[in-house]
């Protein structure tokens, strides 16, 4: 039989699929459609959950929360709603309720993947509510459920160890994560963990090798300076910090800075003994929403001004 021309086939397939073309709507329209369906007696856990997500996107957390509670009334084991609710409650400053919702999410999990994800969520919420020990246990359970874990899990694991003042355990965790995932973020976090743990000799050759191949070097100049200071090479460290600050001045937008760069600049100032400038950057980074781990090295340096010879 002769083959149909491609154009005819294309038209044919378009005609077949045209009636079922998906309609795409913007966020407000989606909410209106969900509302219409809910009000016309077709309410379900999924519909309330989906409307809650749209409300969350539109930065209307109260409405989102109400919808998530409604979703769970329809189906108390609807896992996505528990997870979404836990995160929303944490953002709304209700840490205890958030933890409770995360525990429900674990309970309602339908498979190991979901359960592991919920364990990580719980670990984050416990850490945020000042329970790093419990958080660490939850995090480790997730690893057991779904080895080898994900990039973010290793970062969380290391962060929890830092909160528990177990810095010496962090390098191994991060090195294992790097081996498992190849993520450069874990490799860099491993170097930072070596520095935090005082293992400057192990960190230095990796840092120096990395520095040679970079276009923008400020982050690694900082690491280099920290290693050099740890090894007592203060003059070289000072020169490296000055170069770091020089580059950062070009990269930091004066009015709307990247807070990660502000945290770096603060650390460079602190290591140079410029405490006023360092404290100012710390305040600015925190005001910009920097997470605790991002300013941890800066805070530590501020509390230990003797790390550099200021002559």
């Amino acid at each position: 039989m002769r083959k149909l021309p491609h154009s005819l086939l294309a038209l044919f397939s378009i005609a077949i699929f045209l009636p079922c073309l998906p309609a795409h709507h913007d966020t407000e329209e989606m909410i209106a459609r969900f509302t219409q369906r809910i009000e016309s007696g077709k309410a379900s856990a999924e519909l309330h959950y989906r409307r809650a997500v749209e409300y969350r996107i539109l930065l209307q957390p109260a409405k989102a929360e109400a919808d998530l509670h409604a979703a769970l009334e329809y189906d108390p084991n609807y896992t996505p709603a528990h997870r979404e609710l836990a995160q929303l409650l944490a953002k709304r400053g209700k840490p205890k309720l958030a933890v409770k919702a995360a525990r429900h999410a674990i309970f309602a999990s339908r498979n190991l993947n979901e359960r592991a994800g919920a364990m990580i969520l719980l670990a984050r919420l416990l850490a945020a509510s000042g329970q790093p020990g419990a958080a660490l246990r939850s995090c480790r359970e997730a690893f057991e459920l779904k080895p080898p874990g994900e990039v973010e899990w290793y970062l969380l694991h290391a962060e929890l160890l830092a909160l528990l003042d177990r810095d010496h355990e962090r390098p191994d965790i991060l090195a294992a994560g790097y081996t498992a995932t190849y993520s450069i973020v874990l490799r860099n976090a491993w170097i930072d963990a070596l520095l935090d743990a005082g293992d400057f000799k192990a960190a230095l050759p990796v840092i120096e090798q990395e520095l040679s191949g970079l276009r923008l070097k400020s982050s690694w100049r900082l690491r280099h300076a920290r290693a050099l200071l740890g090894l007592g090479r203060t003059a070289t460290a000072s020169a490296e910090l000055a170069a770091c600050l020089g580059e950062l001045e070009k990269r930091i937008h004066p009015a709307r800075p990247d807070i990660t760069l502000i945290a770096e600049r603060g650390l460079a100032h602190a290591l140079l003994g410029r405490l006023g400038a360092a404290r100012s950057d710390l305040r600015r980074a925190r005001a910009g929403g920097a997470e605790q781990w991002m300013t941890a090295a800066l805070e530590r340096a501020l509390s230990d001004v003797s790390k550099i010879d200021r002559r």
């Binding site: 990039v151 973010e152 970062l155 993520s183 450069i184 973020v185 860099n188 982050s219 990247d258 807070i259 990660t260 929403g289 920097a290 997470e291 781990w293 991002m294």
Partner: peptide, 12 residues
């Protein structure tokens, strides 16, 4: 967020 793994990777 800037502290997230994706943003950290992007910066690096």
């Amino acid at each position: 967020k800037p502290g997230g793994a994706m943003a950290q990777w992007l910066k690096a």
